[in-house]
Deep mutational scan, measured.
Amino acid sequence: QTQEFDNEEEARKAEKELRKENRRVTVTQENGRWRVTWD
């Protein structure tokens, strides 16, 4: 699953929550947008 964010702060917040659920999370930056991908 993927979700896009406008800034790193929001993306990192989402990453932190997903990691609490023991998910594999990848955060990438593309064209000024932050993308959080998880399984």
Rank of each mutant, 00 (worst) to 15 (best):
Phe5Tyr: 13
Glu17His: 09
Glu30Phe: 08
Arg12Pro: 00
Arg33Tyr: 10
Thr2Ala: 08
Lys20Asn: 10
Glu9Ser: 09
Thr37Ser: 14
Thr26Val: 13
Arg24Ser: 14
Arg23Tyr: 15
Trp34Ala: 00
Glu30Asp: 07
Ala11Pro: 00
Glu17Arg: 12
Glu30Ile: 13
Lys16Phe: 12
Thr2Gln: 09
Asp39Ser: 08
Val27Ala: 02
Ala14His: 12
Arg19Leu: 15
Arg23Ile: 15
Arg35Leu: 15
Thr37Pro: 01
Arg35Glu: 11
Arg35Pro: 01
Glu8Arg: 02
Val25Ile: 06
Glu17Leu: 12
Glu21Trp: 08
Asn22Gln: 07
Glu4Phe: 15
Arg35Thr: 14
Ala11Ser: 02
Thr28Leu: 07
Phe5Asp: 00
Val27Gln: 00
Asp39Tyr: 13
Val25Gln: 00
Asn7Lys: 06
Thr28Arg: 05
Thr28Phe: 08
Thr37Cys: 13
Glu15Ser: 04
Glu15Lys: 02
Arg35Trp: 13
Arg19Lys: 12
Asp6Ile: 05
Asp39Phe: 14
Glu4Ala: 05
Thr26Pro: 00
Gln3Asn: 05
Glu8Asp: 02
Thr26Gln: 07
Glu8Gly: 02
Thr28Lys: 06
Arg19Val: 11
Lys20Pro: 03
Thr28Asn: 05
Leu18Asn: 03
Val25Ala: 04
Glu9His: 09
Asn22Met: 07
Trp38Met: 10
Lys20His: 11
Glu30Ser: 10
Arg24Gln: 10
Glu17Pro: 02
Arg33Asp: 02
Leu18Gln: 03
Asn31Met: 04
Glu21His: 14
Glu17Phe: 07
Glu4Cys: 14
Thr26Lys: 08
Arg35Tyr: 15
Gly32Arg: 02
Gln3Phe: 14
Arg19Ile: 12
Thr28Tyr: 08
Gln29His: 14
Arg12Asp: 02
Thr28His: 07
Arg23Trp: 14
Glu9Ile: 10
Glu30Arg: 04
Asn31His: 06
Glu8Ala: 03
Asp6Lys: 05
Lys16Tyr: 12
Glu15Thr: 03
Val36Tyr: 00
Lys20Thr: 08
Leu18Phe: 06
Lys16Trp: 09
Arg35Ile: 15
Asp39Met: 06
Arg33Trp: 08
Ala11Lys: 00
Trp34Pro: 00
Trp38Gly: 06
Asp39Thr: 09
Asp6Trp: 07
Glu15Asp: 02
Gln1Glu: 11
Val25Asn: 01
Arg33Ala: 06
Phe5Met: 02
Glu4His: 09
Gln29Lys: 10
Val27Trp: 00
Gln1Asn: 14
Lys20Val: 08
Glu10Asp: 15
Lys16Glu: 12
Trp38Ala: 13
Glu15Met: 08
Leu18Tyr: 06
Thr28Gln: 06
Asn7Glu: 05
Asp39Val: 09
Leu18Val: 03
Glu15His: 03
Glu15Tyr: 07
Thr2Val: 13
Lys16Asp: 10
Arg24Tyr: 14
Arg19Met: 13
Glu9Ala: 14
Arg33Phe: 08
Asp39Ile: 10
Glu17Ser: 10
Lys13Ala: 14
Glu9Cys: 07
Gln29Ile: 11
Gly32Ala: 04
Arg24Trp: 13
Gln29Asp: 04
Glu9Lys: 08
Val27Phe: 02
Glu17Lys: 09
Phe5Lys: 00
Lys16Ile: 13
Gln1Thr: 11
Glu9Gly: 07
Gln1Ser: 11
Arg12Asn: 03
Gln29Leu: 13
Lys20Asp: 11
Asp39His: 08
Glu15Gln: 05
Thr37Lys: 08
Asn22Tyr: 14
Arg23Leu: 14
Glu4Arg: 04
Asn22Ala: 08
Asp39Asn: 07
Lys13Glu: 12
Leu18His: 08
Arg12His: 05
Glu4Thr: 12
Glu4Leu: 15
Lys13Ser: 11
Trp38Thr: 13
Arg23Asp: 05
Glu21Phe: 10
Lys13Phe: 10
Asn7Asp: 09
Gly32Ile: 01
Asp39Trp: 14
Gln29Phe: 15
Asp6Gly: 05
Arg12Ser: 03
Glu21Met: 14
Gly32Gln: 04
Glu10Gly: 05
